[in-house]
Design a protein around this nucleic acid. Structure first.
Lengths: 331, 331
DNA sequence: CTGAAAGCGCTTACAG
DNA sequence: CTGAAAGCGCTTACAG
């Protein structure tokens, strides 16, 4: 910076003022400085700036696994919104591990991020974020709502999503239900199951006709749980799965076992993955809008960084049911 | 750091030496310092460290779009390998825009990254990387090989992949071919087309029985080009598509038009997307190993950062054909 | 084995 | 409107 100050015949303070456009100098001076920057190929050092000013343009993003389509979509949308405001994401995959989450939180703070977006691992406690709050680094949580955390949160309304799906199945005339629910240690796992259950109870479906299996989040566990349903000869005409990955796995097993999906068996999932739509029959799904969530998380974070001190907010994005051939028929 | 020096009754130099484990002090001193760090909740400031030492633990990652499954897988694997060595990725989506690529390159360098992994946009020139080479920041390119760039490159062997797929189709007895090729401004677009074409010429297939359409990379353009093939009444029993997204789009149109995929028409794609496998019939695909590429890029970058000055290297990961129902039949 | 001090590249009161 | 100087939190020769 002193090089370019020399070249332009001004002081370094003037160079800094030009870069940050504090508007304290004449257009003529600015132009001269900018010309020198061009010629010398100047690239501002954000690190040094942050060291002095305390302000940073990096945002820490902690997700379980960015290769999961939901998070990939989320990150793309978050990155786009951040970059519009001059911010850049530092992304870390933390899996389902609170230890690693703590390490990466520290790591990302060590790198001087201005704010943090995090989908907290199951078992996260309020105190895990002390390291950020001490430093007044705003944190926005998403997707995994943790009870009693009292922090900014944006995610889809999982309870409502499950109710939508279940009511649809009831409307199609189903009376015997099964669900392959996700990990009950996570909020989406619990909420989707609760929505399913509540909708059935409200419709007067007896316990005996509601069967729930619990598993993880992938195709493989859909397959395994479907096999169990088959070998236990559980009776059901409607199957709700925690997400479309589980749906695809379960549907494949059920098809193999001779069930006609879309004719005598309805299968419904969540998250609207292309994979479910590509299936034959196309699988009904509840869209949960990862792109909306990504954009909203970015904007909330930026608002907080701009000094917004409005009370902690919780936003639950409204889901949308996409009825496809796997559940369109009437029983 | 001076606080913890005071607490431990040592100088800041000793604290720094403890953190960086330069091994210059007694275990006893180290223990005392570490205790003070714990108690005061010390988090090292990488920015300040980088400012003084010039060393950084951030890696810039520039991809077209992280929500494309191939790149999502790539990034997960890259991140895992980087984080094993204490590095963290700063990720930017640059689309297909060399202007934005230049901006983000500068941005990422401004944030003090130690190295850069980039899938260069079509039209990237050697001089676009001057900004990095001037600063001696190692750059590893991937997926998009740019001719005459003379830089480290890791990607899949697209030519070989297309040959694998085409030879398979020849072996199944096909004699009339169509291809929906990807953008010819990109190396994968050109190489997959060239591999297809060369394999057919080598087998003595006449020009008249080779039909090539060129489009983008998504389902929609697969759909559009398939419609064109149908309305032009192009004759073919084997269709090769630039990737599985295109395959799915094209296959859907062809099915609608009454073609029996897997019986009188073979469809083959690339990248082994779950979506293609979920299709009925399951679509044959060539796996191109994004996770291997991600890991290798990370390791090469780290080698370069460790001072490896071996000549520029090019690695082309060998592809693998996955034959599924869409092309298993004999003509 | 440990400490005092300079300096990395910026920003920011403060003075003029 | 512009400049001189201090200081952000580290690392690193250098001295002891």
């Amino acid at each position: 910076m002193s090089d370019i100050a020399k070249a332009a015949g001004v002081s370094v303070a003037t160079v800094s003022n030009t870069i940050n456009d504090t508007g304290r100098m004449t257009e003529e001076t600015k132009a001269r400085v900018k010309k020198a920057m061009q010629e010398l190929g100047f690239v501002r050092d954000y690190n040094a700036a942050k060291l002095r000013s305390g302000r940073s343009r990096l945002i820490g993003v902690l997700v379980p696994d960015i290769s999961v389509p939901f998070y990939a979509e989320f990150c793309t949308s978050l990155e786009a919104a951040l970059s519009e405001h001059g911010y850049l994401p530092v992304i870390a995959n933390v899996g389902e591990d609170t230890k690693r989450q703590q390490t990466m939180l520290e790591e990302v703070i060590g790198h001087g991020v201005a704010g943090i977006a995090i989908s907290p691992s199951a078992g996260t406690k309020r105190s895990d974020f002390e390291i950020a709050s001490t430093r007044k680094i705003p944190v926005v949580t998403f997707c995994r709502e943790i009870e009693g955390l009292a922090m900014d949160y944006i995610g889809s309304n999982n309870y409502q999503a499950a109710q939508l799906a279940t009511k649809h199945l009831l409307e199609q005339g189903h009376r015997k239900f099964a669900m392959i629910a996700g990990l009950q240690e996570t909020m989406p796992g619990r909420e989707r199951k609760r929505g399913f259950y509540d909708a059935l109870k409200a419709a007067g479906i007896p316990e005996a006709d509601i069967h729930v299996e619990v598993c993880g989040f992938d195709r493989e566990c859909g397959r395994i749980k479907a096999q169990e349903l088959i070998s236990n000869q559980t009776e059901f005409t409607a199957l709700l799965c925690h997400n479309d990955l589980v749906s695809v796995g379960a549907a494949a097993e059920l098809k193999k076992a001779g069930r006609n999906i879309g004719e005598d068996l309805a299968v419904v999932g969540f998250d609207n993955l292309p994979e479910g739509e590509a299936w034959t029959p196309a699988l009904t799904s509840v869209e949960s809008y990862p792109r909306t969530i990504g954009k909203d998380v970015a904007n909330l974070l930026i608002k907080r960084l701009d000094g917004d001190t409005a009370p902690t907010m919780t936003e639950r994005v409204e889901p949308h049911l996409l009825v496809r051939d796997s559940s369109r028929f009437q029983v």
